[in-house]
Design a protein around this nucleic acid. Structure first.
Lengths: 223, 223
DNA sequence: ATTTTTAATTACTCATGGTAGATTCGGTGG
DNA sequence: CCACCGAATCTACCATGAGTAATTAAAAAT
């Protein structure tokens, strides 16, 4: 049509292949919704590891970078969104297991086991999300998954401890401590392929439950 | 040894005079030893934050990038070296406090308090070192400081628990759990400027000592 | 049918990690 | 004494990736 005359083009040096049209093609932003983009990101990270670029993610989603940016924001926002989704899924699955617990200690054990299990199942995604971002928002980033997870614990712990007269801030501290312990043991466990999950679960549960107390009520059961 | 003479710091100019030299000038790799480079890196990170580039670090040290690479290796190696130094310093200071403890629980409390204290004093450096590196060596990186710190705990815990017949792997798991809890609570505390260090210390100590046990020996002491 | 608006692609800028090639200095042999 | 060679260093470059403009085509409006 009218675009056949490039004489007034301002970029004469940029020659693009004749068969490759620039600009708007089909696919009118219909399947570029946030959910689709995030799902594609998860898919690629799962199979290609944590080193994927935003461009690669966009390509995986069948879109280009600006579309990805419009849909989910910058890298920080992407990691945040993925963290929320992963935390949500983990929470649902873990809570289902925890619901069947026979005691509070058993609930903790199921929580630990479920966390380890899910982290390994989603290894790459878990690492991608917890890796954080080096830079300014780093502090925020590191606490991203922790915040999300800790909120859930906080409510439980607060309720759990409310009958004992503890001040509410203890719930927050304990939540982050719990998440940190879980996370670091998980990282170690993901690295050490040899350690048995059941044993690790038992030890970590033991730590969190009875602490370093010299004389636990029932004696140390880890052996 | 470190007859450091940083007063004669030399900044590379962007433009060089016509007959004037690229290539070798004076300074025959004498003050570009590893220690000097690492110290300069620490200095810059402390004052400029965690977002400093390797080029900036090299400039701070009065050298150029290749010299920095020859001295300490790539970014990964730099972070690793800084982590070791920081962990070493923290360990020394904390252990001095712990040595004066009146009981095992008091030792743990002093450990927690010292960790928090030092982390805040070295805030930027602590964040830089614990941030890790996104990419392939990510898992290694995340566990960097943890490894270093956990080894020290492991020995103590192993000895501590050996009289109770626990298997040795429990020491490792507990170490990483302990470090993870410390780290995440520290991150949270560094973000929340409001929380009082003494209170946080008490809560975290409480968690690690008596765990989530329903009935701690003396009731909750967080008041 | 022509113009305007919208939305997508391309292509760029900028910053940074890492490296190679150019360049000079200091010693050593002729 | 002079030239050359090895060693060490600086400049300049490459590669990659985040983020954003400039460009272009399709769809809606007139």
């Amino acid at each position: 049509m009218k675009a056949g005359n490039p004489s007034s083009k301002r970029k004469p040096q940029a020659v693009r292949p004749p068969g490759r049209p620039a600009g708007r093609t089909l696919r009118d932003g219909v399947l570029a919704d946030r959910e689709t983009l995030l799902t594609a990101a998860e898919r690629l990270i799962r199979e290609a590891g944590t080193g994927v670029s935003l461009e690669a993610i966009a390509t995986e989603a069948g879109v280009t970078k600006p579309i990805l940016y419009r849909g989910v924001g910058d890298r920080h926002a992407l990691v945040y969104a993925l963290a929320e989704r992963l935390a949500q899924r983990m929470a649902v699955e873990v809570e289902r297991d925890v619901a069947a617990a026979s005691s509070t200690e058993d609930a903790l054990r199921r929580l630990v086991a479920g966390y380890l299990q899910h982290a390994r199942a989603e290894r790459n995604l878990y690492l991608y999300v917890t890796a954080g971002v080096t830079g300014d928002g780093q502090l925020e980033q590191s606490l991203l998954l922790a915040d999300r997870t800790a909120q859930q614990f906080a409510a439980g712990i607060a309720a759990f401890r409310s009958t004992h007269g503890a001040d509410p801030e203890v719930a927050t501290v304990w939540s982050f401590g719990l998440v940190g312990a879980l996370h670091y043991v998980t990282l170690w466990w993901l690295r050490e392929e040899t350690a048995d999950q059941a044993v690790v679960t038992e030890h970590l549960t033991d730590l969190l439950w009875s602490g370093m107390k010299l004389e636990p009520a029932g004696g140390p059961k880890a052996d």
